[in-house]
């Protein structure tokens, strides 16, 4: 958990992007359908059933395969010299730079510094009644938890199970679900911050909130 927050912040400031590298899934002849610097879109629609922007066509054995973008962002380091040539599997063709906005950066930083407690299975989750009252009253202070505390109830098929907290002791900094939400397996429920790091984290987040412009 020893992460230098200043370094992290500096890193994000110098390169506020998340890079997605696009490699060929198999061999074939490449023909690009995008240009350097072009904005591309990821899949859309309620069920993500509309494919994203067409990036390139990879043809092997007279089977032209359309490769579409899974991310939204800008095309960078496009290897135009590979246009029309036969490439090996796993060859890097381009990178999609996804520009991070303020909330995404905060979220990423928090996930790095907090200890995340995840849902063990798909179910409805609740805080215990005492926790709820405490959270409502002491909004400023935050609830401190220690290992073994039973603060979460997992409700499945009318059976309620108390889940013990298994991470290091600290203060609940962020809650990722609403009371009674149906949470998928492995989705984060809440993040715990170590008490000594809390003031510093708060300061950094505050700085991002005020300084970062989308």
């Amino acid at each position: 958990m020893d992460i230098n927050l200043n370094d992290l912040l500096r890193q994000y400031k110098s390169h506020p992007y998340e890079d997605h590298h696009i490699d060929t899934p198999h061999t074939g002849v490449v023909s690009f359908r995008v240009k350097e610097g072009q904005e591309v879109k990821g899949p859309s629609g309620q069920w993500l059933h509309r494919p994203g922007t067409l990036l390139y066509i990879l043809e092997r054995e007279k089977n032209p395969k359309k490769i579409t973008s899974s991310f939204t962002g800008k095309v960078a380091s496009l290897r135009t010299e590979l246009e029309g040539t036969f490439v090996q599997a796993g060859e890097r063709l381009l990178t999609i730079q996804h520009k991070l906005n303020r909330d995404e950066i905060i979220d990423r930083i928090l996930r790095k510094v907090l200890h995340i407690f995840r849902a063990p299975q798909r179910a409805r989750y609740f805080f215990t009644p005492e926790t709820v009252t405490f959270l409502e009253k002491e909004t400023e202070k935050g609830l401190s938890v220690s290992t073994g505390d039973e603060i979460i109830i997992m409700s499945l098929m009318k059976r309620d199970t108390f889940l013990p907290y298994d991470g290091p002791p600290g203060i609940i900094y962020k809650v990722y679900f609403q009371q009674g939400d149906l949470v998928e397996q492995d989705a984060p429920l809440f993040g715990v911050c170590l008490p000594e790091k809390l003031p510093f984290v708060q300061k950094v987040i505050q700085r991002i909130r005020t300084e970062w412009d989308d």
Partner: peptide, 20 residues
Amino acid sequence: NEDRTVTCPNAEKYGCRDLW
């Protein structure tokens, strides 16, 4: 009667290989 391969529409989901 064609000498080529095709991709299964579920290839992404189940990792089906190209078919001759």
